[in-house]
């Protein structure tokens, strides 16, 4: 009994410590990203652009390919049900709304977690193991300013941009399948899509994607700084960053979906 209570207490304390550390990291990041530049201590623009290219531009092919396929798959699955009611023209509506509101932001976020979130955790973790973070510190260079802020800004820019691309590519995937395989008139598909979508769908998707970016970057950075020991620690935290990140993305997605449903 004592052991159980003790364990619960220890786990709770660990959680509280973790939350505190995340908060410290958040405050520090916001300080170096927003407050410090206003006081004339600049941002590292070049590094941010490099990271943007790595997170955003380099992810474009894989995000596009996957989203195209998902769009096509979604159209096929929709047709399976809708054809029974002779309502295949509504495939366009379904693909459009699902892509905009849900699947494009979610798929982009999950792909970027695997591709860039893990890379952030591994990079910072390796730097910690090889004393590079300490080296920054003793040179009087703040690791948050130097490492975290460029990644954070790049991620905040890259994910919403990729999400917009993903939305259109996904609808294009649905369009290709529906017109080529199912033989729907292209004109009809356009009209149906246009009639189904409203501005709110886009806004919903974009707001989600913005918060996904925050989650991916923060989890990656946090896990990276958590690395202890050697290569094994890097591997462990990298894996853990992906799992935590995907979990939190789904939770955030759920919260926003409920919120926008009633809005």
């Amino acid at each position: 009994m004592v052991a159980i209570v003790g364990n619960i207490g220890r786990i709770t304390l660990d959680w509280v410590h973790a939350v505190l550390r995340v908060c410290v990291l958040m405050v520090d990041t916001i300080n170096w990203m927003v407050v410090a530049p206003l006081r004339g201590r600049g941002l590292r623009v070049r590094s941010t652009i490099e990271q943007f290219v790595s997170f955003g531009v380099m992810s474009l092919p894989i995000v596009s390919l996957i989203c195209f396929l998902i769009g096509a798959i979604m159209a096929m699955q929709a047709s399976y049900q809708l054809a029974r009611f002779g309502a295949t023209r509504y495939i366009a509506n379904l693909v459009g709304v699902a892509a905009m509101r849900e699947l494009a932001p979610l798929m982009t976020a999950i792909l970027l977690t695997g591709r860039s979130g893990s890379a952030i955790a591994a990079e910072i973790g390796t730097m910690k193991v090889s004393e590079e973070i300490d080296a920054l510190d003793v040179m009087g260079l703040n690791p948050t300013k130097f490492l975290v802020v460029p990644k954070f800004l790049a991620m905040l820019l890259a994910i919403p941009c990729l999400t917009v691309v993903a939305m259109f590519v996904m609808m294009f995937g649905g369009f290709c399948l529906t017109t080529v395989v199912l033989g729907m008139e292209p004109q009809l598909y356009f009209e149906q899509t246009a009639s189904a979508l409203v501005m709110k769908d886009l806004v919903t998707g974009m707001i989600k994607s913005f918060f996904f970016a925050v989650v991916i970057c923060w989890v990656g950075v946090y896990r990276g700084f958590q690395v202890e020991g050697g290569a094994e620690g890097v591997g462990k935290q990298t894996t853990s960053s992906v799992v935590t990140s995907i979990f939190l993305i789904i939770v955030v997605d759920m919260v926003f979906t409920i919120f926008f449903y009633f809005m």
Partner: peptide
């Protein structure tokens, strides 16, 4: 500071 593993970036 010279680190043990040199800690070059």
């Amino acid at each position: 500071v010279c680190f043990q593993g040199s800690a070059l970036f």
